[in-house]
């Protein structure tokens, strides 16, 4: 399994946190209220053990926003929330207490959550791409809900996963979610190489 040394780990966490800061700022403007997003922890996992690394989430009932990316780094980025929590986020952000169905998302709410996912996922990708000097193009977000197996594509089986724990706080609510990047081993190696290059470029 891929591991990062302490310096690499801290650097990547810091870069992603800068990205999440800009995502939170964008969302705060959107909802005219304070939104905070932080990434307290990152780790690598194989696809087989991903479930063990998503502590606090019931992987049978997830809501996800997924978008692909290509360029020098290739893979898919996914935002995962507990199914019912994601409804809560949309309701809080839209200041909308009335939903059509209590257990399901309407098209409107799906699109709203896709936009939130898009902001968070693009923020993470842009921070990595801009700081570590990559060219990365992202595709449009796709909303899906269901258990973890249903959310994964068959091609994901060979991928390595970079997992970010994301804490989103809105008003008085704290909502825990995960961002995962599914990448092949060449992309992961390239990412680590660029992290090292970035660390070396910082004047001591």
């Amino acid at each position: 399994m891929i591991t990062l040394n302490e310096l690499q780990h801290d650097t990547l966490t810091e870069i992603i946190n800068i990205g999440m800061g800009s995502a939170a700022a964008a969302m705060s403007i959107m909802v005219r209220d304070e939104v905070n997003i932080s990434v307290p922890d990152i780790s690598f996992s194989s696809i087989d053990t991903i479930q063990d690394n998503l502590s606090g989430l019931d992987t049978n009932e997830l809501a996800s926003v997924r978008q692909g990316f290509d360029g020098e780094l290739m893979g898919d980025a996914m935002l995962l929330f507990q199914g019912d929590k994601s409804l809560e986020i949309v309701r809080l952000l839209l200041s909308n207490t009335m939903t059509i169905d209590n257990n399901d998302f309407s098209d409107f709410e799906q699109e709203a959550l896709s936009e939130i996912g898009n902001i968070i996922l693009n923020a993470g990708l842009s921070a990595i791409a801009n700081t570590l000097k990559f060219t990365v193009n992202s595709s449009l977000p796709i909303y899906k809900q269901g258990n973890l197996n249903k959310l994964m594509a068959p091609s994901d089986q060979t991928q390595t996963v970079l997992i970010l724990r994301v804490d989103l706080s809105l008003e008085t609510k704290q909502i825990k979610g995960y961002v995962i990047y599914l990448m092949d081993i060449q992309s992961i190696d390239l990412l680590i190489e660029h992290i090292d290059r970035y660390i070396n470029s910082i004047p001591s």
Binding site: F108, S114, E115, T135, S138
Partner: peptide, 12 residues
Amino acid sequence: NSGNSALLSSAW
């Protein structure tokens, strides 16, 4: 500048 695709939903 960054190759990002974005969605502006009618929600906001």
